[in-house]
Design a protein around this nucleic acid. Sequence first.
DNA 1: CCTGGCCTTGACGCCCACGTCAACGATTAC
DNA 2: GTAATCGTTGACGTGGGCGTCAAGGCCAGG
Lengths: 130, 130
Amino acid sequence: MRIGELAARAGTTTRTLRYYESRGLLPARRVGNGYRTYDEDDLRLLEQIRTLQDFGFDLEETRPFVECLRSGHLEGDACPASLAVYRRKLTELDALISDLNAVRAQVGAQLTRAEASLPGGPEPRCELTG
Amino acid sequence: MRIGELAARAGTTTRTLRYYESRGLLPARRVGNGYRTYDEDDLRLLEQIRTLQDFGFDLEETRPFVECLRSGHLEGDACPASLAVYRRKLTELDALISDLNAVRAQVGAQLTRAEASLPGGPEPRCELTG
DNA sequence: CCTGGCCTTGACGCCCACGTCAACGATTAC
DNA sequence: GTAATCGTTGACGTGGGCGTCAAGGCCAGG
């Protein structure tokens, strides 16, 4: 299939595919007229990339998965390098979530404090006044 | 004080201060030679901006707080517009944290599954083999 | 033959909060 | 005097993953 069809089937754009190729992630064969041509395996590689991208993986982080598939494995995460990326990502996610929870707590506390200091006195929340 | 001193006292750089000024967030008075000059109030404004930036607020989102301080309030969050930003940010944070937790769960599940499919069979985790 | 729809490469734009450099003026220390 | 240190404006660079032209080639239908 050609680039437009692959892009449509993967729910992405031709620009994205050319970008991946420029990064060496998803090289394409060419037919006589210079057009790129892809097969079903390429679709699978692309789907792997897109899934990981949706998880927030950097493009470079998807490379081990792609190479794993290309080396004949049925799953992109059937190789140690992919597992290492998973583990590193989990660590990053845990740190990030932890940071965000801390920020959320701080902002929440600030809001509560600021509301309590409003002119007219603290507003009761969800409580009957009379 | 001049720009270098203010930057140092706030733990930031002169570039940052000039950037804030270009955004209309922290305008400076000028002395005869063209140098920017700041006072203690400016330091307080700057600290407010930096605190919110550290929380991950966009620069534009700090504007209500700065204007609140500049209008004479002792706290940047003593104005309704600031509270609105707090609330919006809390909503965003909750959504983001929720998304990240979902991703974390997915990646964690993928890792577990992939580890279980490794050649050589599943590796027992933290358990005695004999 | 012409139109329209696909394809090609190349290159600039975007977002955001600055970093970094260039070329210059002002002030201070000696 | 002069060197070091501060300040000024202007402008380009950064990162990531593309979007969006521009200018042209290839091919099918009518």
